Amino acid sequence: MELTAEIAALRGGTGDPGRLVGEFRRAVLLVPRSGGSAHGEGGLMSAVSGGIRWFYAFTDEEAMARFAVARGEAGREWPYLATLGARLVDAVVPEVDGPAGVAVNVADADGSMLFPPVAGIVPDASAVDVDPDSAEVA
């Protein structure tokens, strides 16, 4: 099953969280670049909410276009990086100063999903629910 179907299943009450995380890790996601340069110079687009940096990621160009429309920025070019969900949480999240997670398809009211900085999603060293001194889930 693909990521959008796993999100729908979980939101509908029939999904499996483990399958959802597996699909997220295997999915190729489109991550907009910040800075607005035609060449995509700058970092990855994100926002901070509740003390967590959320990287925006989308399952396809249509989902990213809905986000652009919702922001009132549909008229500009949206350079993006295509990367695996696993790369976002295993390589990008640990580089952030503070907790970080991934917000998938945030402009889709019934199709969005947050992947927070917790054990099982991000590396334990970046998880907010792991005691760094004992490496145990809090």
Rank of each mutant, 00 (worst) to 15 (best):
G15H: 06
F24R: 08
V28H: 12
V104W: 04
L114R: 12
D90A: 05
D133Y: 09
I7L: 06
I7T: 11
A82L: 07
P117W: 02
V137C: 05
A135R: 12
D108N: 12
G101N: 00
P94Y: 11
R26L: 13
L88M: 14
A47T: 13
N105A: 13
E73R: 14
N105L: 13
V93W: 09
G111I: 02
P117N: 04
A38C: 04
A82T: 13
E23F: 00
E62P: 02
E95K: 15
G120Q: 06
V102K: 03
R25L: 07
E41A: 11
F24S: 11
A127D: 07
W78I: 09
F67L: 01
V128W: 03
E62A: 14
L88D: 13
L30Y: 13
F24I: 04
G42C: 04
W78M: 07
D129A: 07
F55P: 07
G111R: 08
V48A: 09
E73N: 09
A109Q: 14
G51A: 11
V93Y: 09
T14F: 01
R66G: 08
G98D: 07
P117T: 00
R71G: 14
A100Q: 15
M113H: 11
M113D: 02
F115A: 07
A119D: 09
P32S: 03
D129E: 05
M113A: 14
G101D: 04
D133V: 06
Y80W: 13
A107H: 10
F115S: 08
T14A: 11
